[in-house]
């Protein structure tokens, strides 16, 4: 009898210890509308609910800070003050600085000063028009990251010419995802999937230990995928003309404007997916590489070490850079795509 009691006591002690050693992982998820898009956050952790609300608050905070459309945002303040220096929080200055660096890196293909052009095409209001050459010629001098002056000492950002404006939309979600990923790590979350529109950050692995599976949409067929990436602690961002476009006079005009020409980028790519540890980089580069076209994009990849990419071309090829090819499952055969791996 005594022996049995002792056995039970030991078992109970073990069970308590095992239970306390790490609690059970709970799941918390939310769908929210922010930064001009819909976001899906899924978190698995013992403190999932708390992490989720913290994440939501942070997204709303960043949206308020960086939104192009909200008049009380820092970005709007910078735009209103174009022609002069505007004092901004360090966080905003750093982000603008990063955007300028990526602009240089992509030889001007990615550029946050492209907003006046995007405005001219009507993508902000939905009232689409095809601007004529004169209109574009007037706006083009206002575009170029070289026209942004940053003063770290005075903490100011200056847009040199009046009429300039910047839109951080092509980099803000990536930045937000980086902030959120840090937040998750600080809270000990090792399993989460943060989908900020097409910018998907995989934190750790799924609860079972498998990497997160992120599919890449087929630009020509919204219901199909050209492939599935298995990622862990990486951010995946895709840009493509098919995401937003309008048709006029039988031609299709998409929303990724080439900062140098003022018209939608005439690219040999239908979509670019960038995979990187930095969401900021992935977000911005996905747009930049799309504008650059395959050859220049691959050249940039070869000269870099911080990202991999999946390109879908106009001539129906899916080209994957070799660094991520082992984690890419090609599913585009039925869509008529050919699969290639680009080597360094």
């Amino acid at each position: 009898m005594k022996r049995i009691v002792r056995i039970f006591a030991c078992a109970a002690a073990f069970l308590l210890l095992a239970g306390c050693a790490s609690g059970e992982k709970k799941k918390a998820e939310a769908e929210l509308y922010a930064m001009d898009t819909v976001m899906d956050l899924t978190i698995y952790a013992t403190n999932a609910e708390e992490a989720l609300s913290a994440a939501q608050e942070e997204i709303y905070r960043l949206d308020g800070l960086l939104s192009y459309t909200r008049s009380d945002s820092q970005v709007s303040a910078i735009n209103r003050g174009a022609g002069g220096a505007v004092e901004v929080p360090v966080e905003v200055m750093d982000l603008v600085s990063t955007a300028v660096a990526i602009s240089q890196r992509t030889d001007g293909a990615f550029d946050i000063t492209v907003a006046p052009l995007v405005q001219a095409w009507g993508f902000y209001t939905g009232e689409y028009t095809v601007p004529d050459k004169e209109a574009l010629d007037e706006i083009l001098p206002l575009v170029g990251s070289g026209l942004i002056r940053l003063d770290p000492g005075a903490k100011t950002v200056e847009l040199e010419k009046t009429g300039m404006s910047i839109d951080l939309g092509g980099i803000a979600k990536g930045y937000a995802s980086d902030v959120l990923v840090e937040m998750m790590k600080d809270r000990g979350v090792s399993s989460a999937l943060l989908a900020l529109a097409g910018n998907i950050s995989a934190v750790g692995t799924k609860p079972g230990g498998d990497p997160w599976r992120v599919a890449v949409r087929d630009p020509r067929d919204g219901s199909a995928y050209v492939g599935i990436l298995s990622v862990s602690d990486l951010t995946v961002a895709t840009s493509g003309g098919y995401e937003r476009y309008f048709e006029s006079g039988g031609k299709r005009y998409h929303h990724i404007i080439d900062p140098k020409t003022g018209v939608p980028a005439d690219s040999d790519l239908t979509s670019v997916t960038v995979i990187s540890q930095s969401g900021t980089t992935a977000d911005a580069l996905s747009t930049g590489l799309f504008v650059m076209g395959m050859d220049k994009a691959l050249a940039l990849w070869r000269a870099s070490k911080d990202f991999e990419a999946v390109f879908v071309t106009q001539d129906d090829r899916v080209v994957v850079t070799e660094g991520i090819a082992d984690r890419f499952e090609f599913t585009g055969q039925s869509g008529g795509y050919a699969y290639e791996i680009a080597s360094r």
Binding site: A11, F14, L15, L17, A18, G19, E24
Partner: peptide, 18 residues
Amino acid sequence: LTARCLLGALLAGNLTAL
């Protein structure tokens, strides 16, 4: 068997493993 299961769960740190 019992000892192995209990210790295994303790080491893994979760109850469902047990």
